[in-house]
Each structure stands twice: as C-alpha cells, then as structure tokens.
Deep mutational scan, measured.
Amino acid sequence: MGFKLLSKLLVYLTASIMAIASPLAFSVDSSGEYPTVSEIPVGEVRLYQIADGVWSHIATQSFDGAVYPSNGLIVRDGDELLLIDTAWGAKNTAALLAEIEKQIGLPVTRAVSTHFHDDRVGGVDVLRAAGVATYASPSTRRLAEVEGNEIPTHSLEGLSSSGDAVRFGPVELFYPGAAHSTDNLIVYVPSASVLYGGCAIYELSRTSAGNVADADLAEWPTSIERIQQHYPEAQFVIPGHGLPGGLDLLKHTTNVVKAHTNRSVVE
C-alpha cells in the first residue's frame, strides 16, 4: 500500500471513529477524501466538511520552486461564519470567499490569524475590503508590521502568557507558548472536538522541520505538551499544512522538532 493511500485511509478511519463516538456532533463529509496538494491548482481553494458547521479550507501556493498546501478553518456561528487564517495570499483568499459563498452561503463576518507569517495573514486586506472584521493577538499584529505583512485590524486580548485561553464565538483560542513562531495560536472547536494546530503542528508525513527561522526550538516541545494537557479530548487535529489526523500529530511534531534540534547540535 502506497504512503499517500495509507495517509488518506488514516484520515478516513479517524473521521469514521469520530462519527461513531459522537453521532450528534459529527456529520463528516462523505463526498470524498481530504484534498491534497496535487489536486488543488494554485489560485483555487477546496472546502472539506469535518463536522456539522465545521470545515477546513485548503489552498496551495508556490514557494521556492515548489507547491505547498495550506489549511485553515471555518466555523459556523449562528447565521454567520468565523474564518481562521487566510488562504495564503490575496488571490487565494478572494477564491476562498467565493467558494464559501458557493458552498455554504453564509457571510464571513470575523477572521482570526493564528500567527504573523504570510500563509496566515496574506489576504487580510481582501477580507477587510469584503467587510470582514480581522483579528490577531497584539504580538501577531506587531510582528506582521515588522515583517511588512498585512496586519489584522483588531487585537485579541488575554493571550499574552503561555497557557492563556479565551473564548471567541464558537471557538476557544489558546496560546501554548512559542513553537513554530513566538505568537502562534491554537484554535479548538469544543462542539466538535476539532483542534486546529496551525503551523505549530505537523502532518504525519512530514519528517523535516522546514521553516524554523522564527521558531523557538527549545520551547516548542513544552508548548505541545500544554496543548495535549489542555485538549486531551480532541479527536480531529488539523495541521497548518497537509493531512489531518488525531492527537498523534502532536507527538510526531515533537519528535521531528527534537530530531532537528539534535542534528543542529551535532553539526
């Protein structure tokens, strides 16, 4: 069995187990497998329904001669939608809004960016022009300005110390501490036991640490421990890039980060 097929099978099995364990909360999309990078042309966006009122959005972007996937989250909030992270750029984010209108038909009224990198804030200006209120932590807003990236308009308070959590509509926002970046936030959907790890969490097929220019490698494993301790009931975990899975993604990420750190020390 090929690795790609095995990865998709694991996603399907995880979703099936969740649907059985929580039949009222989960209505997993039966329309197909989780979209992969090879299936999404740059400039297009796919939506994948995880649970009743919960979707991931998947886009792709060219970077350094390669094409990478990027995940975000959409959560229903009454007759409105909360968006977590842009679709990595203005063109993708405009396509995301169009796809949401086509498939869901509810307005996106608020959006949260989970850290300051372009795959999370690139497209904020498109959201703002569409009347979406954009939010991020003060740290993310400051770092985005320093980096020359787009800056969300509103500040999220109460997320300055490791372990801080605040309720934001249908989700809980959690600051686990520094990891992929010093400002990275985690998003949890309690009604569906869905954990969105953003770039602080890796997919299972990833074996290298990737972009760690703004990471705190020493603190990252401790931050992941905080996530595990705060959300032990999480059933569906979405990484910032690639295929979702279960809580095993947290341990896998820790292993990859520690291996990278150990290699760096040896070198």
Score class of each variant (00 low, 15 high):
Leu6Gly: 08
Leu6Cys: 13
Leu6Trp: 06
Ser7Glu: 10
Ser7Gly: 13
Lys8Glu: 12
Tyr12Met: 14
Tyr12Val: 07
Leu13Cys: 13
Leu13Trp: 06
Ser16Thr: 12
Ser16Gly: 07
Ala19Thr: 07
Ala21Cys: 15
Ser22Gly: 09
Leu24Lys: 07
Phe26Ser: 08
Ser27His: 10
Val28Lys: 12
Asp29Glu: 11
Asp29Leu: 10
Gly32Thr: 03
Pro41Thr: 08
Pro41Asn: 09
Pro41Met: 13
Gly43Asn: 14
Glu44Thr: 11
Leu47Thr: 14
Tyr48Glu: 09
Ile50Ala: 10
Ala51Trp: 10
Asp52Ala: 05
Trp55Ile: 07
Ile58Glu: 05
Ala59Pro: 02
Gln61Glu: 05
Phe63Leu: 09
Asp64Lys: 14
Ala66Glu: 08
Asn71His: 04
Gly72Thr: 01
Val75Asn: 02
Arg76Trp: 12
Asp77Arg: 05
Asp77Cys: 11
Gly78His: 06
Glu80Phe: 15
Ile84His: 02
Ile84Cys: 03
Thr86Arg: 01
Trp88Met: 11
Gly89Asp: 11
Glu99Gln: 15
Ile100Tyr: 01
Lys102Trp: 09
Gln103Ser: 13
Thr109Phe: 07
Thr109Glu: 06
Thr109His: 15
Arg110Phe: 02
Ala111Asn: 15
Val112Arg: 01
His115Glu: 00
Phe116Arg: 11
His117Lys: 00
Asp118Pro: 07
Asp119Gly: 01
Gly122Leu: 15
Val124Tyr: 15
Asp125Ser: 04
Leu127Gly: 01
Arg128Asn: 14
Ala129Thr: 12
Ala130Arg: 13
Ala130Gly: 13
Gly131Cys: 13
Gly131Thr: 15
Ala133Met: 11
Thr134Trp: 05
Ala136Asp: 01
Ala136Thr: 13
Ser137Trp: 10
Pro138Val: 13
Ser139Met: 06
Thr140Ser: 12
Leu143Thr: 12
Val146Gln: 11
Val146Gly: 08
Val146Asn: 03
Glu147Ile: 15
Asn149Gly: 13
Thr153Glu: 15
Leu156Met: 07
Leu156Phe: 14
Leu156Lys: 03
Leu159Met: 07
Leu159Glu: 02
Ser160Tyr: 10
Asp164Met: 08
Ala165Pro: 03
Arg167Ala: 04
Phe168Ile: 15
Gly169Tyr: 06
Val171Leu: 03
Leu173Met: 09
Leu173Ser: 01
Phe174Asn: 10
Tyr175Ile: 03
Ala178Thr: 05
Asp183His: 02
Ile186Asp: 00
Tyr188Cys: 00
Val189Pro: 00
Val189Ser: 04
Pro190Tyr: 04
Ala192Glu: 04
Ser193Ala: 11
Val194Glu: 00
Val194Met: 14
Gly197His: 00
Ala200Arg: 01
Ile201Trp: 00
Ile201Cys: 11
Tyr202Lys: 08
Tyr202Cys: 04
Leu204Ser: 13
Thr207Pro: 05
Ala209Leu: 10
Ala209Cys: 13
Ala213Arg: 09
Ala215Glu: 11
Leu217His: 02
Glu219Asp: 14
Pro221Lys: 14
Glu225Asp: 15
Glu225His: 15
His230Lys: 14
Pro232Ser: 13
Glu233Asp: 06
Gln235Met: 03
Phe236Val: 11
Gly242Asp: 02
Gly246Glu: 06
Gly246Tyr: 08
Leu247Lys: 02
Asp248Lys: 14
Lys251Phe: 02
His252Cys: 07
Val256Phe: 13
Ala259Asn: 14
Glu267His: 15
Glu267Pro: 14
